[in-house]
């Protein structure tokens, strides 16, 4: 259809591309989770949870 879809179509059928994608997605998920639980971010994020309660309605 277009060079972009063709390229995606071809690479999506390559085993190693799928393997790399899986690892990349898993890594970003684990990384993001670690980031959220990192002590320095923890406090800030817990504070952010109070945002809806700050304002008078």
């Amino acid at each position: 259809m277009s060079p972009v879809t063709d390229a995606v179509a071809q690479s999506a059928q390559l085993g190693w591309v799928l393997g790399v994608m899986t690892v990349a997605f898993l890594t970003s998920f684990v990384g993001w989770t670690l980031w959220a639980w990192w002590p320095s971010n923890r406090e800030r994020l817990d504070a952010a949870a109070l945002l809806p309660l700050e304002e008078s309605p």
Binding site: V8, Q10, A12
Partner: peptide, 10 residues
Amino acid sequence: GLVEIAPMFS
């Protein structure tokens, strides 16, 4: 969507 749909065209 790209990974699933694009191959349909090839």
